[in-house]
Computed example of a mutant assay.
Amino acid sequence: MSRAVLLSIFLFFTTINLNADFHEGKKLFIEKCSSCHKEYISFKKLKENFFERNNTLLNLTIPTENMLAWAIMESSKKIGDPNDNEMRKIEIEDYLKTYLANPDLNDSICDSHVLKYYKKKEPMEISDEESELLAQYFMGYKDDRLKNNPKPVKILSKDYNEKEILEKAKKEGKEIIVFATSQTCYFCKKMKKEVLSLTEVEEAINEDFIFLEVDIDFVNLPFGLKKYFKGMTPTFFFLTTDGQLLHTYPGAWVKDDFLQILKENL
């Protein structure tokens, strides 16, 4: 048997084991942690809660599951080297065991601004196997969420329901983007292929916005946007969760400029 075949078999079973460990870690988190740590809440809504409303919107006393995953994997206090997964997993395991055994907010990796809202956690003992499974869960959390959530783009049909869209926006705490396009628009197709389909852009949209694509040749623009539309495609309309127009951006954009537009509308 060739080395290439052996390598393929090794990678195949390694992937299976990693996936199994992640799902076992997820199961463990649900059984031991989900009674305290709430499920996913968008970071836009979390920012509003902590930085604008002094935690009066959500009244969180413990971080949500996505806040934990972000703190461990992506925050300024993240654990381990992102370029060394094996060592990073060991460091995350060690941190989880040590912190849970003796919880101390002064040793927390959570954002310092939100710590004042959290209550002291009771000590909790976990085994080496449990710490390993939880580490696998947090390390795979973001990829799993992206994989199991639909693409952020919703193409509106003629029978769309504005009320349902607004209810979804309010429930998820997300603003709305309306993308005015047409089948004959060259720059719309170019931007969809070269910008909107990029993982980084999809993640940014999916995190904080509901994205609606409207072919103006066949479907009317929602939320009374027709009176603001100057006939140029593409045009991007940014609206509040109540459907009120915030900003209009006519024309096509490169990745960095479009990401900046998204940030400006948070």
Score class of each variant (00 low, 15 high):
L115D: 09
E122P: 03
K226N: 10
N265E: 08
K227V: 13
E52S: 13
I176E: 01
D104T: 01
S108R: 12
F258L: 00
G80T: 04
A180G: 13
N206K: 13
P222V: 03
P63E: 15
F43R: 14
E48W: 05
I210F: 02
T64W: 11
N19D: 10
Y137S: 00
S197G: 10
P234L: 06
P82M: 00
E264L: 13
G251C: 13
F258N: 01
E130P: 00
M232R: 00
P103R: 12
T15M: 10
C185L: 08
N102C: 04
C110H: 12
L266F: 05
D217W: 10
D94A: 14
I30R: 06
V195S: 12
C33E: 04
R145E: 11
N206G: 15
E175L: 13
S182C: 09
K151C: 06
F13D: 01
F211C: 07
K255R: 04
V219Q: 07
E129C: 06
V195K: 09
C185H: 04
K255I: 06
L225R: 00
Y141D: 08
I205V: 11
E125G: 04
D217T: 14
S2P: 06
M124G: 01
S76F: 10
F29S: 07
Q136Y: 12
S42R: 05
V214I: 12
D144S: 11
G25N: 06
E39A: 14
T14N: 15
N54D: 15
F50Q: 06
F29Q: 09
E172Y: 01
G251K: 06
C110N: 11
S75H: 08
R3I: 09
F50A: 02
S8I: 07
L156N: 06
L196R: 11
N66M: 05
T61C: 07
L46R: 00
G140S: 14
D144A: 09
N102I: 06
K97L: 08
S2H: 03
F22T: 03
R3T: 05
L166A: 03
L156T: 05
K226G: 02
K163G: 02
N148E: 07
E24Q: 14
D144N: 12
F22R: 01
L18D: 11
E202Y: 04
T233Y: 04
E132A: 14
L259W: 00
L266Q: 14
K97N: 07
L28K: 11
P152T: 00
S42P: 08
N59D: 01
D256W: 02
I16S: 00
T199E: 14
L6M: 14
E91K: 03
W253Q: 03
K121D: 13
I261C: 10
E52G: 07
A20H: 08
Y160E: 08
N49S: 14
K154M: 08
V201Q: 01
A180C: 11
K78G: 02
